[in-house]
Every structure is written in C-alpha cells, then in structure tokens.
Design a protein around this nucleic acid. Structure first.
Lengths: 303, 303
DNA sequence: CCCACTCAATACCTCCAGGGTATGATCTGG
DNA sequence: CCAGATCATACCCTGGAGGTATTGAGTGGG
C-alpha cells in the first residue's frame, strides 16, 4: 500500500464516481480503477459497491475512509512540523550561561529569539566557562555564553556585546563624591575580584589594568560572580570593578562611578560559543538573532 | 513522499548505518541512499548528519522519526481494522425485531453472534413486519425478525425456529384441570388474538385452525403482542393461543396447556429477513450464525 | 422496446523511477 | 600509510504507473 492509494481512495470515496475522481486527480479513469482494485486486493476487502450510478462505500470502506483521512492528515502535519524544525522554528535549544551574565544582554537576546521562534524551547543551564566547553563537546548544550573566550580548534566564538568598566564603591567613601575616578585613586582600596574558576578571566584583566596604572592591588576577596562582589562592596570589603551592565544591580549603600583613564579600546566582552561543526538550523537561527541584536544595540561604549 | 520512504527512513534511523539498514530492508545500499536523499530533498530538511561512522539523526530527524513511526502504526492499524470490518468482525449491525419475539430464540441468537463477533455493535430496533421490510429497503436495518414472512422479490428469508402451539388459560378454568386440551374444547371460550397490523399474520393461522376444527371462534380482543395477550388471559378476557416460547412469560393465574390435536406439520415459524442484494460480510456472518444456531437447537417440536 | 448514455472494466502501449552492480570519495584506526 | 568501513555517484535494467482505445453492463427516455 502506498500514500498514493490513500489519496486516490479518498478522492473516489468523496466523488462516488471514478471518472470524476480521476479528473480531480488529473489522471485518466483506467489507472484509477486499477489502483482501487489493487488496494482492495491488497487489503482483501471490498471497499466499494459498484452500482450503475457509480461507486458507494461499503461499511468497511467507510471505516477505511476515516482512517485514510487520519493518515493523510498526520502525514501533512509531520512534514509541516519537520520543515519547521528544519528551519530552526521548532525544537529545543540548550544554552549554557554563567551566573552574573544574566544581568543585561542575555535576557534581551533570549527574548528577541523567543519572539522570532516562539516554538523553540530554550533551556538554560548555569555552568562555568570550562563546563560550557565540555558540555558543548558532549552536545549537552548548543550555545554557551561567557567572557574572555580564547579561540579554540573546534569551538566558534561570536561576540555579543562589549561593555565599559565601572567601579562599585561604598556611597560614604570619600572617592564616591567624585563623579569620575581616576584609576590610580583606587590604589589604597582593597579589591574584590571575580569570577573564581578557569583562567584567564576577568580577574586577570583587572590585575593587568592595575599594573598598567602602576600599582599592585590589594586583593580583599575572590568571589564567584558580580552579584556577590557588589554585595561585598556594600558590606565594606572594598571596591569592585564591574562591567557597565552591573548598574542594574542596585544595592543600598553602593554607587557606581566611571573610571576616567581606562586605556583606549578597553572593554569587557560577552561572547557566545558554539561547535564549529554544528550545522543545526537552530544554532544558525540563534546566531542570526545574535547578529541582529548586535546591529540593533548601541555601538560599544568607549571609556 | 511515500510509505516506502518512511519505512526506509525508520530503518536507517534505527540502524544509524545505511548499509545495515539496506540489508535489513533486503535491498542494496545505493538505492537506499538515494531514497533518503530524495526524502530530505522533498522535505527540504537535513534529517541525518553523515559521519564517517554512519548516519545520526538531526533534531528535525528525531522529530520526523517519531512522526514516521506514528504514521506507520496508524497505517498498520487501519489495514487491520479494515480487514476485520471486511470479515464482518467489526462494525455495526442494525436489526429489526418485534415486541414478543424477544422471548426465547432472538436473545440466544444475538448472544451467540456477540460471542463470535464481539466487536460488532448490534443495534435493535423494535418495528412491525411492514416497517421492517420498509427499513430493509431503505438500508436502515440489515436484518429483520418476524413470523409468517411471505417470500418477496428483493427480500430473502431464513427460518430460525419453529415452535408448537400452546393455549394460555386461566388456572381456575375447568379446562385447566386437563393436562392436554383438544382444540374443539376451546369452542366456548372467547379468543384473544395477536398481533394487530399487517396481514397475513399469526391471527389468520389461529382462525384457520379453528375452522379446521369445525367452529367459528368468538373473538374477545385483538392485541399487539403475546405479552399483552397473556396479560388479558390473566384478567379473564378469554384464552390465547401462543407459541411454545411464551411459557417463559409466567403470569399468576395463567397456565399453559398443550393442544392435543393440532394438525401434523403445524408450526409457528420465526424467520429473519434480509436484502437479497446485500453482500455485506456482516450480514453473511450473521446468517452463518443463524445456521449454526439452527443446527445446535433441538429439532422442531411436533404437536 | 430499443437506442443512447453513463460508468466501470479490460487490453495494450509507453516511459519513468526504483532497484541492481560497479566504482569513487572520504575518513579512521592499526 | 594502508586496510577497512561508510556514504555517494554512475550507469543499466525492469516493473509498474499512467495513457489511449475499447468493451461490457446497466438505465432511462422516446
């Protein structure tokens, strides 16, 4: 049996006349007759009563008509759904993120993606940079988000945003009175650094900035993410250098100040990573959305 | 697309290897490769990732695999169900019956049919002899049950049972003291006759018997069916001649007595009727059951 | 009562597509 | 670097789907 048989059968059942059904199917009458006979023979069941006025369904034929319609509808639906899946409009995308990156860009990006592809289920997994790469290689995620990603053989990188640097400082600190702080002025303040974990990381960037400014920083504490860092600032552990987006974290007793003299072209990047060999249309659609997002976002701020 | 494509696709998806799948399908490898390519082209979707180790499904392929399995299962089920319907093992059989025929044979017969064909829904419609024939012609029923059916051009008849004749009489009637009553002894008793409606009927048979016995009966009342007739006997309206099976009707104050001298070969028949041109396997199966039933039943009693 | 009409069925032909064999291209593991 | 595995390509062949012409059967109107 063949889907063609079902199509023909339904046509004949609906027209109750082989000639008209053949016309509807854009074939001639004799092949249609044969196909129907073939179908009946294969099933071993008489589906139609031949009357001088045409064909009428038997009880078994009535039943088979229902089934045939179901099957055809299911086939239609299957192709439609599969095509949507093939275009990255249907399916599931596993995304690795790290704690404090959820602050600004990622939610907006994911929202944009959801709007474009409402039937894609996006599943977020919080994991560190190293875990993300491992998970990519094991195909447990398709995309990861992180900062300071070194290029790798099998992993592609796509920069999502660049941000400038701010300093989070206690509101009652004398320096907080200045609208802009010079880097060297931080020398006497103990630094809270993040994230712990795989190096190189944001930590190294901050330490590098200090040496450029001519001093060795006093490290007060290393913490996992920006949120914890700013919380420690509120508690008086010191100051903390954070990306622009951290300003969405409003802590009582903490203010953010611009740094006057970060080097030109300095920025904190947020990138997403993916398998270079991943041809999945879902990944393609996602990276497309990332590109759109970069275009729509304001140009990277320069310190 | 074709059911063949689905079968091939499922095999490849399960084997994850075109060569093995081809072996399983009893075809050679190249045609299978082509069929898969064709399927992908038609859908416009990459279903498999070609790796040096074989084929693995893409996300869209995974989805299509599910759908393909569903479709194939549905096709299987459809053919199976249709075949059962074609063998008269599945479907619906509308049966016309008349009130008091439900007494003995019909329930047993329907029970036997239900046991043989548990998935056939038997729908009973109470209707008179004339209505049954009309309903057969309009295909509203497929089988009718009645007595004294004259053969017709388009309607086939099949005798189900033959029964002897009894007389229902008040228990305190003097005649009731005899175990056997001769027909002529009924001469003084008013008769309750049934059924009203289309002639010839059981009524004519009873009147004929009376004339044979040499008297003109006094007609007390004509009623619709045996149940009502026996009820009137209980109320003292007279006596009522009924088929054997009426003894299942136990009314207080009514007894049944054998008639000593009904003519040889006399019987009350119960037959079923059907369209001669009805080729439905359901009808065939039903008539088969009727034949079985007749064989299994005791030979027709002779008065 | 017969002829014209309507359908389905049959006979026969053509051609494409599905299947086969042989071979190529590519990657991997010893 | 070679042997083996795996998918892809090239090419041929045959069965079957579709086409045309015709027959067969049953119906209704004149």
């Amino acid at each position: 049996m063949d889907l063609r048989h079902l199509r023909y059968f339904v046509a004949v059942a609906e027209e109750e006349n082989i000639g008209r059904a053949a016309a509807r199917l854009h074939i001639s009458q004799p092949p249609l007759t044969r196909q129907i006979q073939q179908l009946e023979e294969e099933l071993g069941v008489t589906l139609f009563l031949r009357t001088p006025r045409g064909m009428t369904l038997t009880q078994a034929g009535e039943l088979f008509l229902e089934e045939a319609r179901n099957i055809r509808a299911l086939v239609e639906q299957a192709t439609e759904r599969t095509q949507r899946a093939g275009q990255g409009k249907l399916g599931r995308l596993d995304v690795g993120i790290f704690g404090s990156a959820i602050l600004d860009a990622i939610p907006k990006l994911l929202l944009a993606f959801r709007n474009r592809h409402p039937d894609v289920k996006v599943v977020l997994h919080t994991m560190s940079k190293g875990e993300q790469i491992e998970a990519l290689r094991q195909r447990r995620i398709s995309v990861g988000f992180n900062r300071m990603l070194a290029p790798l053989e099998d992993i592609g990188v796509c920069q999502v945003t660049t941000e400038g640097l701010l300093v989070a400082i206690q509101a009652d600190d004398p320096l907080a009175r200045q609208p802009v702080i010079r880097f060297a002025e931080l020398q006497q303040h103990p630094l809270i650094l993040f994230p712990t974990g795989a190096r190189p990381s944001f930590i190294d960037k901050v330490i590098g900035l200090c040496s450029t400014a001519g001093f060795q920083p006093t490290i007060s504490q290393e913490v996992g993410d920006a949120v914890t860092g700013v919380a420690l600032v509120a508690s008086g552990f010191g100051v903390c250098l954070v990306p622009d987006s951290a300003t969405t974290l409003q802590f009582p007793g903490v203010v953010y100040r611009t740094l006057a003299d970060t080097p030109p072209n300095f920025f904190v990047d947020l990138s997403c990573i993916y398998r270079k060999d991943d041809q999945s249309p879902l990944l393609g659609a996602f990276l497309e959305t990332v590109e759109e997002f970069k275009k729509a976002s304001p140009a990277p701020p320069r310190a």
